[in-house]
């Protein structure tokens, strides 16, 4: 069953259309990769799904419910949580306060202690940095805190926007080990990446976004072997 079902989605900024007819289906329990060049509309799609920007046309169904037009906090409450591009931590708060903000929604609040334990188990570094101001962390640590903050909301569908961007390969490995662990526990994950090889390697299914619509989709292994993907995105 599709946990997220996007149909005919059009969205953009003001008069500038960015998404032109997006159809996206994410199966529960899977990892889906969304790849595409800079400016293809990946972040716009995620921001529309999260309710940050409005759509002009189309529908977004999550867990059988129409979520298009719902306020962002209701979408988070339903378990659809995004880790934004560029981490976007609250820089003047401590790491621990950032995590607490992650469990702001009324459904996540009662599970705060349980979720804290879970994210500290997943990222021991986050616990070590608990009292530090988030703005003073390294990029990799900030990314871990950003994911941990999203996990505090008890997501069923986790959207990861450009998680690997600007991070050292060893840190990327560490983070994606954690992502795989979350998936193994049954969490549904959408990985949006410019790092195509990484995204297709970790994912079950993939979509290629080009100029506001999907140019290709299919099993990740199939896309990885596709000559067009190889040439345009993998540089092989």
């Amino acid at each position: 069953m599709a946990l997220l079902d996007v149909k005919g989605l059009h969205a953009g900024y003001g008069d500038v259309p960015v998404l032109r007819g997006i159809d996206l289906s994410i199966q529960a329990g899977s990892i889906t990769a969304l790849i595409g060049a800079n400016g293809a509309g990946k972040t716009t799609l995620l921001r529309t799904i999260s309710g940050i920007i409005p759509a002009e046309a189309g529908s977004i169904r999550y867990d059988g419910q129409d979520i298009l037009g719902k306020p962002p906090q209701d979408i988070v409450r339903a378990g659809l949580v995004q880790v934004p591009e560029g981490r976007r931590l609250f820089p003047d708060m401590t790491v621990f306060e950032n995590l607490l903000i992650g469990s702001s929604s009324p459904t996540a609040r009662p599970r705060r202690d349980e979720n804290l334990k879970m994210v500290f188990g997943l990222f021991p570094k986050v616990r070590e940095r608990g009292a530090q101001r988030a703005g003073t962390l390294s990029g990799g640590e900030q990314q871990m805190v950003a994911i941990a903050r999203a996990l505090m909301a008890s997501p069923r569908l986790l959207l990861l926007d450009e998680t690997s961007l600007g991070l050292a390969p060893i840190v990327v490995d560490e983070i994606f080990v954690a992502v795989r662990r979350l998936a193994a526990q049954g969490m549904t994950i959408l990985v949006v990446e410019q790092n195509t090889a990484l995204a297709l390697e970790v994912a079950d299914h993939g979509y290629v976004l080009e100029q506001g619509h999907f140019a290709m989709e299919g099993p990740a292994s199939g896309l990885m072997a596709d000559p067009r993907v190889k040439q345009a995105y993998l540089g092989i």
């Binding site: 940050i52 962002p72 906090q73 949580v81 995004q82 934004p84 976007r88």
Partner: peptide
């Protein structure tokens, strides 16, 4: 501190 990040964290901004 960050409107969008707060929205994505479930804060009723």
């Amino acid at each position: 501190q960050d409107r969008d990040a707060a929205l994505m964290s479930g804060v009723n901004v």
